[in-house]
Design a protein around this nucleic acid. Structure first.
Length: 260
DNA sequence: AGTACCACCTGACGGC
DNA sequence: TGCCGTCAGGTGGTAC
């Protein structure tokens, strides 16, 4: 479920584990994960170098190399990073593996290969070229209200549009709207500035709580919808049956009693 | 501007 | 047990 909270947790994990170690070996297991780069270029960018900074924008993660280049990672629908010591600790579906001088490895894992790994000049340039909106965890309330105000689509689609605000995906859009007590197919344009300001408050609250829970479903608060995303589940607030529907092609879960 | 649909991949699950 | 259709948390392209 890699959305902004998950990627933020990965960033903090990388900060705590993977910086300032010399890279002694670099292996690309499956080149299908590479985006506009080659195995050779990736190896040249990292071998005998090190990583010294991690940043995140929306669902994108950037690791600065000591050669003035950035490793860009996008996870897609499945994926994570793992820092581990022993060979037998290697996870399934590791696509790129760095080995550090301290004997530890860093694996970029992507089961479905829907993610990408590449090299970029710097995060700001990448964000501009891709046309990503401001990061959802950094955007000020006024800007959020300005960007979303008057949008004609559904609330869920608007929240998930990365070119407007970057970082919210299918799961957290549902969670945010559940706590905002708004249905996902409610039209964004029907919310006035006050209501959009309230939606910003809810968005920040939900995403920060998710990060506090290490984006782990096991640690989510009891009144969250997220652990109940399957057929026949009950709303954790009112006990009613959770409804589901495809909205703009994405599976959505909501409670028709709690949300309007 | 916004939505529908398909494609990219692998794997889990339910029905038969 | 095995085969098959369906679906999954992201994104991009095309058609409308």
């Amino acid at each position: 479920m890699p959305e902004a909270p998950d990627i933020q947790v990965y960033k903090e994990y990388l900060d705590a584990t993977s910086l300032h170690h010399k890279v002694t070996h670099m292996e690309t297991r499956d080149t299908r994960i590479l985006d506009e780069t080659s195995r050779q270029k990736l190896t040249a960018a990292l071998s005998r170098g090190s990583l010294d900074q991690v940043t995140r924008h929306g669902k994108h993660l950037f690791l600065r190399t000591d050669r003035a280049q950035w490793l860009h990672i996008h996870f897609g629908m499945t994926g994570y990073v793992l820092y581990y010591k022993r060979e037998r600790g290697e996870p399934d579906h590791a696509r790129v593996i760095l080995t550090f001088a301290n004997g530890f490895h860093l694996a970029l894992v992507s089961q479905r290969l829907l993610g990408t790994v590449g090299l970029v000049e710097d995060p700001q340039t990448f964000v501009a070229e891709e046309g990503l909106g401001p990061d959802v965890l950094s955007v000020a309330k006024e800007e959020f209200v300005d960007i979303l105000g008057g949008r004609r689509g559904y609330l869920k689609s608007t929240l998930m549009n990365q070119s407007l605000i970057a970082g919210v995906g299918n799961v957290y859009s549902d969670e945010i709207l559940f706590h905002a007590r708004l249905l996902p197919d409610h039209r964004t344009a029907s919310l006035d500035a006050d209501a959009l300001g309230g939606l910003w408050n809810t968005t920040q609250d939900v995403l920060h709580k998710a990060i506090d829970a290490r984006a782990d479903v096991e640690n989510m608060p009891d009144d969250w919808l997220l652990p109940h995303r399957s057929k026949g589940e009950h709303c954790p607030v009112c006990g009613g049956t959770v409804s589901t529907k495809k909205i703009s092609g994405r599976r959505s879960y909501f409670c028709t009693h709690c949300q309007h």
